[in-house]
Design a protein around this nucleic acid. Sequence first.
DNA 1: CGACGAGTTGATACTAATCAACCCTTGTGG
DNA 2: CCACAAGGGTTGATTAGTATCAACTCGTCG
Lengths: 245, 245
Amino acid sequence: MKQTVPKHRDEIRIRAVPNRAPDRREDGPFLPLSATDKVKLGHLGEIIEFKTPGTEIVSQGEKSTFLYLLTDGVIEADRTLHSGQRQILAFYWPGDTFGLAENGVYVNSASALTQCTVYRFPTQQLATFLLEHPTIQEGFLVKAVHDLRNAQRQIIMMGRFDVTERLAVFLLDCSGHERYFDASRRVLTLAMTRYDIADYIGTSAEGVTRAFSRLETKGLLRRLTPRTLELTTAELKAFVDFSDS
Amino acid sequence: MKQTVPKHRDEIRIRAVPNRAPDRREDGPFLPLSATDKVKLGHLGEIIEFKTPGTEIVSQGEKSTFLYLLTDGVIEADRTLHSGQRQILAFYWPGDTFGLAENGVYVNSASALTQCTVYRFPTQQLATFLLEHPTIQEGFLVKAVHDLRNAQRQIIMMGRFDVTERLAVFLLDCSGHERYFDASRRVLTLAMTRYDIADYIGTSAEGVTRAFSRLETKGLLRRLTPRTLELTTAELKAFVDFSDS
DNA sequence: CGACGAGTTGATACTAATCAACCCTTGTGG
DNA sequence: CCACAAGGGTTGATTAGTATCAACTCGTCG
């Protein structure tokens, strides 16, 4: 289920679009981090592997002892209400951090959707470490702002888009991750169920299926299997009405 | 319209709930900042007053030259889509920062709903300043995470709550600010129109009015005037189903 | 006084939630 | 090896919530 792997060290990298216009642009969607900073962070953290999809890694309401950095796999963060309703707040991809806390308590749960490997950092040590390493702290600040922008995109999506448009936005987000979108064949592989997607875009599983068939009717995608889709990102982008993207 | 006021200096303070459990709790909803840090920040920034409600302070798509810290008044941040639809992403209260940027460009517009006084910091200088002042940078990091949690609350609200519940959540948020909620008389004064509220909770102005009358029918509030409400926060909290609050 | 914007109410249309039934794949145990 | 259970996925019928359009009131300001 869970296993420490001290042998190899995956590359430490943080996925974020910077606030300011970058002077260099060689790092793709990741923040520039000096080699020594990566080493220092690597020493502070610990690598964990989660072999079984579905494993809950952090649990809403529990004491927040670690901040996590995903290096491989896909993770889902959700909150469950008293009524039992579940809202998925984000899907995390390699380079994303998770384990959001308030007053020392996790506000969301997070579960692996695939096999995952993560770094985890003890929150106490991390806090003092960041004060001593301002450039790394800046990285985490930029990452937090990046996540804030993403959350705002999602608010717009929920507030102004119908279910079909929301699904299109979601699929576009997914196809931004090379590991799961084969750009040459234009095939997207989904790591999540209809229920997961529904709880993310604020509808029901049936609603997701119907939105899929409407997109298919419009010729914006083709379902090869329920979990593998052939799609053209340009056409989907033309379909949704973001002022950015 | 806009006027520099170098005479008096308002207190610099950042409104945020910390990630970790605080060891001291004397600062109310604001972050603990040392006196010298406040002075240094004050020197970096500049105080601006906006006399006329409705003034647009930052404009979506423009080059981001300043980060703003609100010291008095209420501000609204919104994004307008190609279709003309508007989504309000947040209302800002004293102690909040605004002027969110991506790649050096503001992603949202922000307008004053009341008379406002703000600090503004040149983004370039602020970035280097924060690297030299890790404790202040930590403050901005905690603030960004705070805003991220708020955005997630809003996602839950939009994804799982009906219009009436969303209005209740909004009113509860408003009544958290002493300046606009007289706790002894239980009277909340709204700075925003029905249209603003509608664009915030993702409905229409008519929808807001109907939600008001449903809450009034349920006995959860009383409309003294359209903009002043008598309400009991405890009853409203019981009505909404957040796992926190 | 008249114009305008905010706020409210009613009638109608439509999106999507819900309930039910069903298919398909996968994995497990007899 | 096959039967059956379980969960994911899809489709149809019905209903509930709310968007939209229209009309009207009220208060404010020039």
